[in-house]
């Protein structure tokens, strides 16, 4: 059982990461990653929706018929997104001023429906919740990384305005990486999102290939005695 959860975690966070491997959810990814804080906020909001939608859809998977499953899932996901939207507006209003425009974009994130179809509709509630949580954290990791790279190159800061998202206690995270930086506007604008995403996907591929090669090298000597 715990083995299954470990596999789900590894798959979600790295091997089958929503952004870096499945290349899904590009609309929110490009729209919000102009800073690390925005990426983190959007990632966490998406994680909340993914966790809830996966668990609810898994719980009703035996009632929902094949024919109408897509509209049922979409309505549930849209409802959850709206709930997150009004909750943030009411109880974290400063954050809403930063993220408000983008929360509704979570509905357009095909990764949420994708996980409902690919995992939650076929698995029990707990593994589905785990899948939603981990996929969401993988998404958060990807968005925060893209946001951090764009923010550092584009504005010379890191986690600017983090206190709006996490409270005053986290203002220590707000760093000025490059003092007196004039800014590199391209990185903040949409083309920067595509550039950074492209380089990060390439970097992930390189890391994966190196790991695979090392695994082959490590496996070879052990394989020889068996062969002889």
């Amino acid at each position: 059982m715990s083995n299954q959860y470990a596999r789900i975690s590894r798959e979600s966070l790295w091997d089958n990461n929503i952004v870096f491997a499945q290349i899904l959810g590009m609309c929110p990814t490009m729209a919000v990653t102009s800073s690390a804080t925005n990426g983190l906020g959007m990632g966490l909001a998406t994680t909340a929706v993914l966790l809830a939608s996966n668990m609810i859809i898994s719980a009703i998977r035996n009632i929902v018929s094949e024919e109408v499953r897509i509209p049922v899932y979409i309505v549930i996901i849209a409802t959850l997104v709206t709930l997150v939207d009004v909750s943030i507006n009411a109880w974290a209003h400063d954050l809403y001023k930063v993220l408000g425009l983008y929360i509704a974009l979570i509905v357009a994130n095909c990764a949420v429906l994708g996980r409902a179809e690919a995992f939650a509709a076929k698995n029990p509630v707990l593994p589905s919740g785990m899948d939603g949580l981990m996929m969401g954290l993988g998404f958060t990791f990807a968005l925060t990384t893209i946001g951090a790279v764009r923010e550092i190159i584009g504005a010379g800061t890191l986690f600017a305005d983090a206190h709006l998202l996490l409270g005053q206690a986290f203002s220590f995270m707000e760093l000025k990486i490059i003092p007196d930086y004039k800014g590199f506007l391209l990185m903040i604008l949409p083309p920067g999102g595509f550039l950074v995403l492209g380089f990060l996907i390439a970097a992930k591929r390189v890391i994966d290939r190196n790991r695979a090669q090392r695994a082959v090298v490590a496996a070879t000597p052990a394989a020889e005695p068996v062969a002889s």
């Binding site: 549930i76 009004v86 009411a90 109880w91 209003h93």
Partner: peptide, 28 residues
């Protein structure tokens, strides 16, 4: 099934709208 889903989700949204309305107005 579709009707039931719509009913339940609408009810959830209506409740949420009532619960957050005052706070949203206060924040604005």
């Amino acid at each position: 099934l579709l009707g039931g889903t719509a009913l339940l989700t609408t009810a959830a949204l209506a409740l949420a709208a009532r619960a957050t309305d005052a706070d949203i107005h206060a924040a604005e």
